[in-house]
Structures are given as C-alpha cells and as structure tokens.
Design a protein around this nucleic acid. Structure first.
Lengths: 155, 155
DNA sequence: TGTAACCTTGACGTTGGCGTAAGGTCGAAC
DNA sequence: GTTCGACCTTACGCCAACGTCAAGGTTACA
C-alpha cells in the first residue's frame, strides 16, 4: 500500500542525488527543502521535484561556490516561480504577485550577474592555462633535442 | 635603510590583496606562500611576486571553489614553472627537469579540465537563467494588461 | 510473530579557513 | 629614551556544512 504514488524514501533520494541522508535532513532543517510529507510511521516521503531541488542546490554549491544561506535565497526564488506558474490564474492579490515577481527577478538577475562574472574570469584563466601548456610542450621539445645532441647514439 | 629594495611589509600586502594579515600568515603556515625574508627584527618582507601569488590563490579559491590543499598543488606547479624559467640553462639533471615538467603539465591539465567543465555547466545555467528572466518579464507584462483592463481609468 | 532493513530524533564531533585576544618586540620619530 | 603604531608568536575561538554515533521506532515480508 503505497502512501503516495511515486514517492521516495530518504535512502533512495540520497542514492539518486549522491548526498547523504544527513545532508537531506540538514537541508530541510535549514529551509532549503521544505518538510516532505511523511508516512504514518514518520518516514519522510520525497517527490521527484524534491530530487530536482537537491540537484539544483548542489549545482549552485559546486558552480558558484556560495553559502547555503545565499542558495536558500535563490531556491526561494524558484519557489515563487513554481507558485506563480501553478496557481497562475491571478484572480486576486495582483500587487502581491507583482511583489513576488519583482523579488524573484531581482534574485535571478543577481545570480545571472554572478554567473556572467565568473564565466568572464574563467575565460581569462583558460587562456592563461592554454598558453602555459603550450610553453610546457615547447620546453619538452627543447629537452628532447638537448638529449639527442648530448647522446646521438647510445648502446 | 631599506632592507630589500621594493619589499613590502605584511600590512601593505594585506591592503593590496584584500586579505588579512592573519590570512597571509596562515597561507605561509600551510605552504601556499613560502616563508618571506625578514628584517633584522623579524618583520616579514614580501616581494611583488608574493602579491601576485596571493591574488592567484584567491582567484582559484573564488573561481574554482577548491580547497587550499588542492590550490597548494597548483601553485606548486607554478613554482616549477618559475624555477624552470629562471635557471633555465639545463646544464644538468635533465631527467629531473623532465619529471618536474611532467608533473607541472599534469597539474595544469587537471586545472584546465576543471575550468572547462565548470564553464560548460555555467553556460547551461546561463541559458536557463536567461529563459527565466524572459518568462518573468512576460508575466509582468501580463499583469500590467490585467490591471489596465480591471481599471481602465482611475482617479 | 519475528527479523532485517530502513528510518527517526538528538546530540556531540570534525574539518577547513580563518578571527581574535594576549602579551611581547620593533622601528622611527620626537 | 620614551612613545606609539606596526608587527611578532601563541593559542584558543568560531562558523558552516556536514559526519557519526546512540537508542530506539517502522516496514515489509516470510
């Protein structure tokens, strides 16, 4: 008797996302994941959406190297997006929705700016590294030739 | 009587690089910076090269988000580069030099791979964010129109 | 009805990357 | 030769982001 169709226990989510169960609970504690539904006995039941959130969080962590506090801001913006998308009929509280939209836009733009800047710096680093690698191969060749001249034949 | 021409005390280096004096000593402790020369009294004397190293370290930290231990590997590779460049006349120990060169090449290539991968992921993230921003502006427009229709004139 | 695998909360431990305070020394100027 | 800011070492402190027990409850299945 499945408590909820297609729901996942914490162990499965951990496996699929590559984080530990502890980390999932920790994220919940910190508000990065909302409290999932539970089985009667108290076992957590996650959705596919939760899995995606975790993956998203990890990408942000890995790519942008920012704190979980900052990441929380960003995934909250995602939340706004989802909310606006689902109960999309804006039958009421338009100014409220507008406010949320502004906030989400601001956060997204901030994130965008970070990505842009980092990409720029990465491009610089990339050219430096390329140059360096060329230098290394040239030196290696020079060493090769030196060795040839030093010992034209051997045996 | 300058102890060394153009040498910098720790305070100046801290200011110019934007890190604290504690951080500079910490990096020294961890082997990321070599022990600088000292004045008779024990005050540290840094070179311009040291300043660049610090800036490099911070770039790696910020951009790649890797541990100082890993960064140490990388700046050690830089060191090899400098050594090979200065005492360039390879009058002796060619195999030794070749080994160093191999190591430096390997580390540089590893770093290059990280940069490449991150840039790729960042591009993905960039397109996602762009898309999202477009969505937001569209929604905002829709809200505008809804408001216009709800209250064509007001006052 | 047992039992192995899975889960729960709670609480303390760890690691990296520094912060910070204490108590003493150095250097240049007066 | 004293003053005062910059610097020294030593050493404990701190926060984020989890890791790691411990002691017990739950589930599924035979």
């Amino acid at each position: 008797m499945a408590e909820k169709r297609g729901a996942l226990q914490i162990g499965e989510v951990a496996q699929r996302t590559g984080v530990t169960q502890r980390t999932l609970r920790f994220y919940e504690e910190k508000g990065l994941l909302h409290p999932p539904s539970r089985m009667d006995g108290g076992f957590r039941l996650y959705s596919e959406e939760d899995v995606q959130r975790v993956e998203h969080i990890r990408r942000l962590q890995d790519l942008l190297g920012i704190s979980l506090a900052d990441i929380k801001e960003m995934v909250d913006a995602d939340e706004v997006l989802r909310e606006l998308r689902s109960q999309y009929r804006p039958e009421s509280a338009i100014t409220e929705k507008r406010k949320q939209l502004e906030k989400a836009t601001a956060v997204t733009e901030a994130q965008f700016a970070i990505v842009k800047q980092k990409m720029e710096q990465m491009r610089e680093m990339e050219t430096q590294l390329t140059e360096r690698l060329r230098l290394f191969t040239r030196w290696k060749q020079e060493l090769d030739e030196l060795e040839k001249k030093a010992a034209p034949t051997r045996g």
